[in-house]
Amino acid sequence: MDGTRTSLDIEEYSDTEVQKNQVLTLEEWQDKWVNGKTAFHQEQGHQLLKKHLDTFLKGKSGLRVFFPLCGKAVEMKWFADRGHSVVGVEISELGIQEFFTEQNLSYSEEPITEIPGTKVFKSSSGNISLYCCSIFDLPRTNIGKFDMIWDRGALVAINPGDRKCYADTMFSLLGKKFQYLLCVLSYDPTKHPGPPFYVPHAEIERLFGKICNIRCLEKVDAFEERHKSWGIDCLFEKLYLLTEK
């Protein structure tokens, strides 16, 4: 054995408090879109979701699917093309516009009456609605409950000090017999300040354990050449399924 860690023996890093005071403002996230600093976007979609999607959907149609901090995630069109209703929230209007443009979807925009100064973008087909606002303002819009949440790049982007508020927001959107698919990253948080932030299993239990059954479905090596600039040499991604207790 050469000592290389595999996707099945990932350790939890003990120094989980080192990132707790890290803060990125909404304006800084918007600047990332304006300046093209969106390496977190996956042009081909998320491979773990693609692998498990049909198993999760079980042939159902007409589900309501929520994408927190959606950006221009191509997976939104995957669900819409399968007959589901997609709702996303994203602070960057540019990111939302790029989604519709890159997916060749016509759309309209209208003000969100409950949140002055914000807009919702709706596909002409009517099954994709993307709200351009802070996720913490979203419950004011009465958008209803969801059958499924796809959380990739959301919890790991939320400032650590806001995670409890974020989890409570997610709980307010969950319908009966929900499936909450959650991706988190595992790396040494003493070497990279984030975002994306390190979210250990214990944190998921703390945030969601009282209401959800929590199961880790898969762990994969997600390290890429660009991650060397973070000062790390190891990065794993974990896919969790959260269901109603």
Rank of each mutant, 00 (worst) to 15 (best):
T190Q: 11
I91Q: 10
I143T: 03
K119A: 05
P196M: 00
I135F: 00
V87D: 02
L185W: 08
C212H: 00
P160R: 04
T38R: 10
D151T: 00
K176R: 10
Q22M: 15
G36Q: 11
P189E: 06
V220W: 14
Q47N: 10
L48R: 05
P200V: 03
E225W: 07
G231K: 09
S106V: 13
D137W: 02
V120W: 03
L94S: 06
V86R: 01
K77H: 09
V74T: 07
P111Q: 11
L69Q: 04
L105V: 12
M170W: 01
W150D: 00
E75I: 05
G231A: 09
F197N: 02
T16F: 13
E237H: 13
P68C: 02
N213E: 08
E90Q: 00
G194M: 07
G88W: 01
T141G: 08
G88D: 01
H46S: 15
C183R: 04
K32S: 09
A202S: 14
H192C: 03
F136V: 04
L207F: 05
G153K: 05
S7I: 10
R226K: 13
V87Y: 04
H192E: 09
S125M: 15
E224D: 07
L138F: 06
L241D: 02
F197R: 03
F178A: 10
S14F: 04
R140A: 07
F67W: 01
E224P: 02
K119G: 02
R140Y: 13
V120L: 06
A167G: 08
R64C: 09
E205F: 11
E237R: 06
R206G: 09
G161H: 13
L173S: 04
V156C: 10
A167P: 00
K20I: 05
K50R: 08
F121Y: 12
I214C: 15
P193I: 03
F223G: 09
I232A: 08
Q103C: 07
E114F: 07
N159R: 07
V34D: 10
V65Q: 00
G175Q: 13
K20G: 11
D81Q: 09
F208A: 03
D81M: 04
D151F: 02
E237N: 00
L69A: 05
M1D: 07
G161A: 12
T101L: 06
S129G: 04
C165Q: 15
I143W: 04
I232H: 01
E90V: 07
C234K: 01
S124P: 14
E244P: 13
F136G: 03
E11L: 02
M148L: 14
S85C: 14
S124Q: 15
K245W: 08
N159L: 03
S14E: 07
L241A: 13
G88V: 00
D54W: 07
F197K: 10
D162V: 09
A157C: 08
R140S: 06
H84N: 05
V120C: 08
E109V: 08
S125G: 07
Q44G: 11
Q179A: 12
H41L: 05
S106N: 04
R82P: 00
L8E: 12
N35P: 08
Y13R: 07
V156R: 03
F40S: 06
Y107V: 06
F40V: 06
C70V: 05
S85Y: 13
E43P: 14
T190H: 15
R5I: 11
I10Y: 12
I158G: 00
I128H: 01
Q22A: 04
D9H: 10
S7V: 07
F79P: 00
K50E: 13
N159V: 04
F208L: 02
G45D: 03
S123A: 05
V34N: 04
Y131L: 14
L235I: 15
I91R: 04
L8P: 08
D188R: 04
V184A: 09
Y131M: 08
L48T: 09
D151I: 00
E93T: 07
L173T: 11
T6L: 08
I149P: 00
F40I: 06
S134R: 06
F197G: 03
F56V: 11
A154T: 01
A39C: 15
E93G: 06
V120Q: 10
G83L: 01
T25V: 06
D162I: 02
C133E: 00
E218A: 12
F66E: 02
G83V: 00
I112C: 02
L242T: 00
M170R: 00
T55G: 07
A202V: 11
N213V: 13
T101M: 06
P68W: 00
N127V: 08
F236A: 15
H192R: 11
V86M: 01
N35L: 13
F171S: 06
D233R: 15
E27F: 08
K37P: 12
S134M: 03
A167W: 05
K219T: 15
V220M: 14
V156I: 01
E27T: 11
P111A: 14
T6W: 13
W29D: 06
C133K: 00
E17V: 09
G175V: 11
L105Q: 11
D168N: 15
A222V: 15
K20R: 07
T118R: 13
E225R: 11
L8A: 15
S134G: 04
L130E: 00
K191E: 03
E90G: 06
L94W: 02
E43R: 11
L235V: 11
D31A: 12
T190A: 09
L185R: 05
N142R: 10
K177Q: 15
L241G: 03
H227R: 09
K145M: 07
R64V: 04
A157L: 04
S108D: 02
A73N: 06
V23P: 13
K119E: 01
Y180R: 00
Q42V: 12
L53K: 04
R140W: 08
C70I: 01
H201L: 14
K58L: 06
P195C: 00
G144A: 05
S106A: 14
M148G: 03
C183Q: 03
I112F: 07
M76T: 02
N213D: 12
C234M: 15
Q44V: 14
F121R: 01
A73E: 02
Q22W: 03
D9T: 11
G71T: 02
Y198K: 15
Q42E: 15
K50A: 10
Q30F: 09
Y240S: 01
K119Y: 07
Q44P: 08
N213C: 14
E218R: 03
S125W: 14
I204R: 00
D9S: 05
A154W: 00
K37T: 13
D81L: 04
D162K: 05
L155Q: 00
L181K: 00
V156T: 15
W150V: 06
F67P: 01
E110A: 09
D81H: 04
K228G: 09
F146W: 00
E224A: 15
G83E: 03
E11K: 12
V156H: 04
Y131S: 00
E75A: 03
G3E: 13
S106L: 09
D15S: 13
S186Y: 13
F197S: 02
C183T: 12
G62A: 14
E12K: 02
H52R: 15
